[in-house]
């Protein structure tokens, strides 16, 4: 008796597959980054001790700037892609999705650019 075998080629990952993978891999990275940020800034330091000088002292260290750059890059992309995945449940037409995807992409680009400029430019003195 012969056995018939059939090989199925694994399909090339499309955009949605990559986005699905990105959410999970970025999640693993974001656990220490975001939990650390929250426990430090909200719980240990607290908002009552945060002001312009605090940010200036913090950003004087390149390590904290890199930490914040990673947060900006990964947390916000993860967040905007999450909003996209939720809205895909509600918007089913190709046209609607196209408008929504471009709108969210622009939102991501503009907000990330604003954050990156501030992060690179640093704290400016009060005039």
């Amino acid at each position: 008796m012969t056995t018939n075998t059939r090989t199925i080629q694994k399909p090339k990952p499309n955009f949605e597959t990559k986005s699905w993978m990105f959410m999970r891999y970025s999640a693993i990275l974001l656990i220490p980054l975001v939990f650390g940020h929250l426990i430090l800034q909200d719980v240990i330091v607290g908002v009552h001790r945060i002001d312009l000088d605090y940010v200036a002292i913090r950003w004087a260290s390149i390590g904290w700037r890199i930490y914040d750059a990673l947060l900006l890059a990964f947390a916000f992309a993860h967040g905007v892609n999450g909003i996209r995945q939720v809205l895909n449940d509600f918007i089913q037409s190709d046209r609607g999705r196209k408008i929504m995807h471009w709108g969210l992409f622009l939102l991501w680009l503009i907000v990330t650019a604003i954050g990156a400029i501030a992060l690179i430019g640093g704290v400016r003195p009060i005039s």
Binding site: V47, I50, D51, L52, V55, A56, L72, A75, F76, G79, V80, G82, I83, V86, L107, V111, T112, I114, G115, I117, A118, G121, G122, V123, R124, P125, I126, S127
Partner: peptide, 30 residues
């Protein structure tokens, strides 16, 4: 919880960027 965090994150990036763009207004946000 994801949507809530994402919406806060948009505001939080913008308010923190005040330290560069509008340092006079940062204390108001805080």
């Amino acid at each position: 919880t994801g949507l809530g965090t994402a919406l806060f994150l948009i505001i939080h990036i913008l308010d923190t960027s005040f330290v560069y763009f509008f340092p006079d207004l940062y204390q108001h946000a805080i």
